[in-house]
Each structure stands twice: as structure tokens, then as C-alpha cells.
């Protein structure tokens, strides 16, 4: 690990002006410190952002809840009101890593984490995400990789919270220069869809401050995943759904899939398909088919397609249960 400087930012403004293009923000450090130890990144400066005001609160508003970027996943998962109002969000937080990790990991860090692709993480491998000529997962060991890809890179988005927040139609508030901007979850990741080198849309000096989750009367939410192990394992596929089932019909339902694409995979067409249709397994299967319509199996990841379809059906079943 290269030597680095360390500074604690007292405001969001100072955090983004301090970090520059050679620094990195440090919150829980779950992802960043691993990357540094493996020699994948060598920041000259770490800017501790845990003291930035207003980033540790979970606040219930009338129409919108805000969750600070420095809220730990343990706190989010165990928050009694969050569990009641946004169960899918609490479930997604609870499904991250191990208890020790969730104690340190933060909401902002989970959203801004970098690729977990084992070629990207391999210290001596030179892949397209690290500036190489090609994606090593293509034609290689791509069992854990995307079935939906737009660039050469097959690394999927594995941020649990991104999947749940996408289904909940949440916004992400980001400090950009002197201003704050509000992004949709899709916007937060869209660059990863179009740029093989990108992990998300944020520049190195853009800091997530909080997420804002709209409250929809009567809506429920759910997050389900399948991994190889029962716990402490990355999702092979995850699915979040949020919305209402009224009079046996789906209303305002949004779906998102994780670990299948470089972004939380959402399709307006699938959501629209559900609108007003009977809340049955058949309807759910129809939405699943739309969501996975463009999925392309590679040598080792074809299983993700049936798993994703099964999870969509289960998530929608849970929504109406």
C-alpha cells in the first residue's frame, strides 16, 4: 500500500474541494481499504467524510424519508420504522456481507462501491475496467457476471441498496462542486452502462450525501436474493419490488434486478405491463420475461436468467402476500 495523507472534512463543501482528483472519500472503508491493500488504487489522500453534518440521520418526512450517506447498514437494517415503511430496503441492507461488515459499511459506500469482478480485483490482471484492452470475463470465468451488457465489461452492479432503492423510486443527493444535485438511481449508475471503465456515474470529487425515499400510501416493498451460501455471500441475482396490490391487481409496481447488469436492471415496460393486471404468478412471469428479454447467456452465467425470473415471481408474490 502506498503512503497517503488523511484529513477529516467538516463540511460537504470542504470534502469535495479537498479530495481533488488524487484523493478518495473514506467512510466505512469496506471497499476502499480492500482496493488499497490489493494495490488496485493508490490514492494520495483519504478524506474522512464521516463528520460531514447531516449524513448520519434517518429522518421521516411527510412524503419522503431521508437516509444519510453515513448511516450504517446495521442501523438501517435494524431501524424499526424503516422495517415497517420500507421493508425491502431493510432486507437489502440486512443481506449485505456479515454483521461485522454491516456495522462499518455505510449507505453511501454501498452505493458507490466498485466492481467485485474477480478479474478486476486480481492485482496482476489487466482488464478493460483497469485500462486494459479487453474484458477477461468474456471467454473466461464469467459465472458471476452480467447477462445484460452494453460495453465490453461484464462486471455487474452488486450494490444491494441500489436494487432496493431503484424499486422504491428513491433519489440520491450528491454534492457536486459547490452545489447539490439530485439523481435517480438509474442516473447514479448510467455511466457504468455506457463506459466500461466506470463503476457508477460519480466523479472522484462527487460525494453522496443522502438518499430520499418517497412514501407511497399503501405500497409495500420486498428484496430477495439468491447466493451460493445462506449468508455472507454476494447475490448471484437479487430482485426488489415495490408497489401496491389493490383489489387483486398490481398498482404502481416497480421492479429492479441486481447482479445481472452493470446497473440495477429496470425496465419501464415491465412495470407498465404489471399495471392493473391481476396479481398472479402468470402476470409476474410475464413481467419477468420482459425484464430478461434481452438477457444473453455467456458460457457460465446462463443460470442467472431462470434464477432472475424466479426471483421476480417471488418478489411480486411477496408484494401481494
Amino acid at each position: 500500500m502506498k503512503a497517503f495523507s488523511y484529513v477529516t472534512a467538516q463540511t460537504a463543501d470542504s470534502a469535495v474541494s479537498l479530495v481533488g482528483d488524487r484523493g478518495r472519500f473514506l467512510a466505512g472503508g469496506m471497499d476502499l481499504l480492500g482496493e488499497m491493500k490489493d494495490g488496485l488504487v493508490e490514492p494520495a489522500l483519504l478524506v474522512n467524510v464521516k463528520a460531514v453534518p447531516g449524513t448520519r440521520e434517518i429522518a421521516a418526512g411527510r412524503g419522503t424519508w431521508t437516509v444519510g450517506a453515513n448511516v450504517t447498514l446495521t442501523r438501517l437494517a435494524e431501524h424499526a420504522e424503516v422495517r415497517k415503511v420500507f421493508p425491502g430496503l431493510a432486507q437489502a441492507a440486512e443481506a449485505v456481507g456479515s454483521p461485522q461488515m454491516r456495522n462499518g459499511a455505510t449507505v453511501g459506500g454501498n452505493l458507490a462501491q466498485h466492481s467485485r469482478c474477480w478479474y478486476y480485483r486480481q492485482r496482476d490482471a489487466r482488464c478493460v475496467k483497469k485500462g486494459g484492452a479487453r474484458c477477461l470475463a468474456r471467454g473466461g470465468e464469467n459465472k458471476y457476471h452480467s447477462v445484460l451488457a452494453h460495453t465490453m465489461c461484464l462486471s455487474p452492479c452488486v450494490a444491494n441498496l441500489a436494487v432496493a432503492l431503484a424499486a422504491l423510486d428513491a433519489s440520491v443527493v450528491v454534492q457536486r462542486g459547490a452545489k447539490t444535485v439530485t439523481l435517480t438511481v438509474a442516473q447514479l449508475y448510467e455511466k457504468a452502462w455506457t463506459d466500461a471503465k466506470a463503476h457508477h456515474s460519480l466523479g472522484s470529487d462527487e460525494l453522496i450525501l443522502r438518499v430520499e425515499v418517497p412514501v407511497v400510501a399503501g405500497a409495500r416493498s420486498v428484496y430477495v436474493k439468491v447466493a451460493e451460501k445462506s449468508e455472507f455471500d454476494w447475490a448471484l441475482v437479487s430482485c426488489a419490488a415495490a408497489g401496491r396490490v389493490e383489489g387483486g391487481q398490481f398498482r404502481g409496481v416497480r421492479l429492479a434486478l441486481g447482479s445481472v447488469a452493470a446497473v440495477p436492471w429496470q425496465m419501464q415496460e415491465a412495470n407498465a405491463f404489471l399495471e392493473g393486471k391481476p396479481a398472479t404468478d402468470e402476470t409476474a412471469a410475464g413481467a419477468a420475461a420482459i425484464l430478461l428479454r434481452d438477457a444473453e447467456a455467456r458460457e457460465h452465467n446462463g443460470y442467472k436468467i431462470p434464477v432472475a425470473k424466479a426471483l421476480v415471481r417471488r418478489a411480486l408474490a411477496a408484494l401481494g402476500a
Partner: peptide
């Protein structure tokens, strides 16, 4: 016996299109 293999044994996994042909 990971999920991909169980599903493959059950005949539920679509064939992969290979960037470079290997035979899993």
C-alpha cells in the same frame, strides 16, 4: 453443487453464447 449446476442438471439453463469457445 452450486445453483448453476443444479439448474443445469435440471435442464433449465439456456446455452451460453461464447465469446471464445470453451466447453464447460
Amino acid at each position: 453443487l452450486t445453483p448453476d449446476r443444479v439448474l443445469a442438471a435440471l435442464g433449465q439453463v439456456p446455452k451460453g453464447t461464447a465469446d471464445t469457445v470453451r466447453r464447460p
